[in-house]
Amino acid sequence: MTEAGTRGVYAASDPLTEQMEELQFVLGEGPCWEAFSLRRPVLVPDLGGVSPTRWPMYIPAVHDSGIRAVFSFPLQMGAMRLGVLDVFRKRTGSLTGEELADALAFAYVTMTALLDHHEEAATKGSGDVLADAGEHHAELFQAQGMVMVQLGVTIGEAMTRMRGYAFAHGRRLDDVARDVVARRLHFDRDLS
């Protein structure tokens, strides 16, 4: 799913999962849609406990397939939305605190991989970057907004450019962001 309205299943771990994702697109309802539009996770530990009016077509269809719980995490950073990560379970029950933190971190890593156009990383994931995923200062997001305007690109592309710059110059992303906010670094002037 993207802001521009492009929708499709990007990657699925197995045929059943793929089928479940296709189902949501066909029906136009379900936790994935809700997570995207509300810009927050939608966690359903027991699909049997969901009011039938919430997703009238989705619930019976997904139940037939043996899925009992679903957890949807938006791949987002503020106003930038790249899609949704769905986790399905064949038994009911909440995610533990650790599983939840892992899922959120994995969603973050997937999002950054998509930003960097690393399709391989997006589908395989990477364990060592999970530890500090998502811990950024306000300057990073302020800089992202500034670079967006400097280059006349989307908010997502602005982050891609900043990450690319940090990588190319061997610098930490937060330091690059601080320079942008302090107006020591201008993506429109200094990089042309």
């Binding site: 987002q76 950073m77 503020g78 306000a138 990073l140 302020q142 907004g145 670079v147 305007v149």
Partner: peptide, 14 residues
């Protein structure tokens, strides 16, 4: 996440 949106908007407006 809402907090991040406001930071991005602050940067854009600045």
């Amino acid at each position: 996440n809402s907090r991040i949106i406001i930071e991005q908007a602050k940067g854009a407006v600045a």
